[in-house]
Design a protein around this nucleic acid. Sequence first.
DNA 1: GCCTTTTTTTGATAAAAGTCAAATTCCTTT
DNA 2: AAAGGAATTTGACTTTTATCAAAAAAAGGC
Lengths: 188, 188
Amino acid sequence: MIAQVIAYFNSICSMPAELVADLERLVEIKELKKDDFLLKAGKISNHASWILKGLVRSFYLKDTEEITTKFLWEGATVTSVYSFYSRKPGNENIVALEDTTLAMLRFDDLQYLYKNHPVFNYIGRVITEQYLYMLEIEVYNLRKQKAEDRYQFIVKHLPDLLQRVPLKYLATYLGMNLETLSRIRAKR
Amino acid sequence: MIAQVIAYFNSICSMPAELVADLERLVEIKELKKDDFLLKAGKISNHASWILKGLVRSFYLKDTEEITTKFLWEGATVTSVYSFYSRKPGNENIVALEDTTLAMLRFDDLQYLYKNHPVFNYIGRVITEQYLYMLEIEVYNLRKQKAEDRYQFIVKHLPDLLQRVPLKYLATYLGMNLETLSRIRAKR
DNA sequence: GCCTTTTTTTGATAAAAGTCAAATTCCTTT
DNA sequence: AAAGGAATTTGACTTTTATCAAAAAAAGGC
């Protein structure tokens, strides 16, 4: 299980044996059942996780409505960027939409790795860049004013998401309400 | 001038003398006049820059309309994330809104620094994380459905921007049109 | 399979934001 | 200070999306 994460990190930059040994010692595998929470609003996020299998959703509460901010699946890294880096409680919830397997690293352990294995900063930076890149695409889509354009972007670029995610979550993720999404879909 | 950048990097992680010497050799100071371009769509972004003074705007063209995607000023790092990291031409333009002074690093030189000075990976990672953190806040604001809420976020958290940026650019940045922004402002 | 609950769709109406045109204000430059 | 141009505001109208209510469809538990 851990081998999968090691292989991924190695594909970014080849790691020395001591680093691999430290990772094998520090990485924790966790299984989440559908609807289990990885993080609750008001708590400090203490882990960054790599998704081995499954799909998670992050959201925050606006009045009583859940606003979905992200869907992440196999191969993606998940954490609450705000809470994890600021070390403060945030408003973000992360919950499994499917049974999910994670490889997790604690904040403190990650700092230890960054301090003691300079190469690991290279890997951390590349992963952060990938996340950044993904987020930029998301912003690009969000800035489109037409609800239909935002939906068509998903149809074109992330069609799998439509199979795996209930529409009620997709709607707030795309900044529209459920009825609007339903009407857009009814058009064809 | 370069001392300012060195001091900033040192504040993230103390750098050995050889790294400082390499930086002094490789960092290039550039002065942009208002309306000068730092990057044009269709070109590969070859530099990452640190803004010493001034303000830049990035935008892309949607049909004939300029959609502003970012404002960056003193202390911020600027590059086209997509083009710089993918080494491909993108659709992003970056232009100075004020006379601007930059400390620039070429892509190749940055890779050289990462390879030869492991500590610099630590600094690069932290800067990338800061950029990510900022982008997340931006996305959070964009996902608000009401145009007025998005504008009020700027009033509250980035009031200086209102003094430094023409409203026509702020409008597309906030995902609304100029007339809507003008009407929101007229309310008070 | 049947019942309950959740999710999605549909309808009627209201609110928000966009579009186009024109007027006004603000800046620059001479 | 005046002229020209750019930026912003205002008005009339249209389109898009939200809201509220209810019906229909789908999914899960027993």
